[in-house]
């Protein structure tokens, strides 16, 4: 039986009828067209599907939409809401500046996880960043530039007081 869910996605109110066995990642990608959130392993190992749920990084391939009823969700698309030509989120900009990606498949999850690391640890050491990236896999870069990017992004976030859409409510 379909269930009505109402949630905030990147600051926009969304209300839909969904099947109980609908995964959050599929809902975001297929119903809302937010294909920046990727499906990698689909077994909650790789972190390509990482989004923010009420401000905390979670794996959207391992969550039902119905569990997110009433929640505030931020996806990679919500970090720089103005799109092309607009300012990137400091963490996105740090990935760009530090060449923190090659093929880019894991990048949305890396950026969302990176913001979570910065929010939890402030200015994390490289060791902390590496430990905190346990649940995000990259098969191209060898992680070195990802760690550099997150360190730089955390620094930029601390300087600018950057907030995600989840924290500001899309204001």
């Amino acid at each position: 039986m379909a269930i009505n869910v109402s949630l905030s996605v990147n600051g926009q109110a969304v209300s839909r009828d969904v099947q109980p066995n609908r995964l959050l990642v599929d809902f975001l990608r297929e119903e809302l067209g937010l294909t920046g959130t990727h499906v990698g392993c689909d077994t909650s190992q790789c972190g390509a599907c990482t989004i923010h749920l009420d401000g905390l990084p979670v794996k959207s391939c391992t969550m039902l939409v119905v569990q997110a009823d009433g929640a505030r969700i931020t996806t990679i698309e919500g970090l720089a809401p103005d799109g092309d030509g607009g300012d990137l989120h400091p963490m996105q900009e740090a990935f760009r500046q530090n060449h923190g990606l090659q093929c880019g498949f894991c990048t949305p999850g890396m950026v969302m996880a990176g913001i979570g690391i910065a929010q939890r640890h402030g200015l994390p050491s490289n060791d902390v960043i590496r430990a905190e990236l346990d649940g995000n896999f990259c098969r191209c870069t060898g992680y070195h530039n990802i760690v550099k990017s997150i360190a730089a992004g955390a620094k930029a976030m601390a300087m600018t007081g950057a907030k995600t859409v989840a924290e500001t409510g899309g204001e």
């Binding site: 099947q19 066995n21 609908r22 995964l23 599929d26 297929e30 119903e31 067209g33 919500g78 809401p81």
Partner: peptide
């Protein structure tokens, strides 16, 4: 940011889990 209307064939991956 505009959220587009429902895209085609969102049912494919729904079959992964049995219904409940």
């Amino acid at each position: 940011m505009d959220i587009p209307a429902r895209l085609p064939d969102p049912r494919k991956r729904e079959k992964k889990m049995y219904r409940f």
